[in-house]
Simulated assay, not measured.
Amino acid sequence: MAKKSNLFGRYVWLVDLLRRHKRLTFNQIKNYWSESGLNSDDQLTQRTFHNHRDAIFDIFNIEIRCDNKNGYKYYIDCPEDLENDSFRSWLVDSYATLNQLLVDQNLEGRIQFEDIPSGNLWLTTILQAIRENKVLTITHQGFKKEHPNTFDIEPYYLKVVKRRWYVIARSPFYSEQNLSNPNFPKDKDPDVFLVYALDRILKIETTEKRFVLKKDFDINEFYRGCTGIIPSKDPIINVVIRAYGDSVDYIRTLPLHASQKEIETQKDYSDFSYDIKYTYEFLQLILMQGKQVEVISPQKIRDDIKQVIEEMARHYK
């Protein structure tokens, strides 16, 4: 019987195995297990295997099914759902890598991870509040604020962007203010959702107050067309950029935004199209590409980038 402390690692190992090999018989899975560094000389029995299947479904909502008509091979049902779910996919990838590092001493010190230096202190508290729909009282001080402020939030989502953790939360104060305002437009949603960087939170207290989760709040709609952490109500526009040299393959394989489409491919460059909201974060994203990228349209963004480049050049005169 597997040790309880190692069960989660075994579940991730099985999911990762079927992700890589697609379809395997039980005997093939058993042989892979016997060669795994996680194995402490115990055999994978049919009973343990099916217990793992049940646990994987309960924890990850991943169903491992058996193809009885083609050699009794096991496979992940609807694997595209897993691959399209960035959180579950990240979780499996991370723990699969961690499994390998824990059991293979030859890999010690051979992998470097990008450090996220801020906000980790509050992660478990916020996750627990999200799980239980509990209101949090936070003391927060923004970069441009002289003094911290203390207020309640209703945490909905956690998000990591550019090595910083953020919580997306409904503001009870501003939402109730809108609801009590007789002049507030009836065709607009009175609920206000704000974004807080965890590294700017000085203190968190979990209250006994519970909030009702708004079922119609869509995080994808909240960030639709955005390229960073700050949401925008601006209209979505089409932007075309031209990538030169090595940046073509880089952008092609690591899109700058989910809406990216390669619309023209030439020997020396490629053009990419985006449907985005023009924000300061998008401007920063383009400037990060340096001389390898040129904005083709619209003209306003070309002009804005030209102005920034001219101001930058003055710093070096």
Rank of each mutant, 00 (worst) to 15 (best):
Y196F: 15
P148A: 11
I168S: 01
P190C: 05
I204M: 03
E154H: 08
I153M: 04
I204V: 15
D199C: 02
E176S: 07
G142Q: 06
F151P: 01
L179Y: 02
V195P: 09
N181A: 03
L194F: 12
L179V: 10
T207G: 09
P190F: 07
F143L: 14
V192C: 04
L158H: 00
I201Q: 03
S171F: 05
H147N: 13
E208Y: 11
L179M: 12
A197L: 06
E208Q: 14
D187Q: 14
F143V: 13
R163Y: 09
I153R: 02
P148F: 05
H147M: 12
K159G: 02
T206W: 03
P148K: 06
T206H: 04
T206E: 13
A197W: 01
D191Q: 13
L158I: 10
Y156I: 00
H147A: 14
L158N: 04
K144H: 15
F143W: 12
T150F: 00
L202H: 09
E208P: 03
P172N: 10
D187P: 03
L194R: 15
N149C: 09
I153H: 01
E176K: 10
N149R: 14
D199T: 02
P148T: 11
Q177T: 12
N181D: 14
P172W: 09
V167E: 00
L198R: 07
V195E: 05
P190A: 06
V195I: 15
D152H: 13
P185L: 11
I204L: 04
E205A: 10
F143I: 14
K186A: 11
E146F: 07
N149Y: 11
V195G: 00
S171A: 10
F193A: 02
Q141F: 10
E146Y: 09
V161G: 05
L198D: 01
I168P: 02
V195R: 01
I201F: 01
Y166S: 09
S180A: 09
P155D: 13
I153N: 02
G142N: 14
S175F: 06
G142R: 09
L179A: 05
P190L: 09
V167K: 06
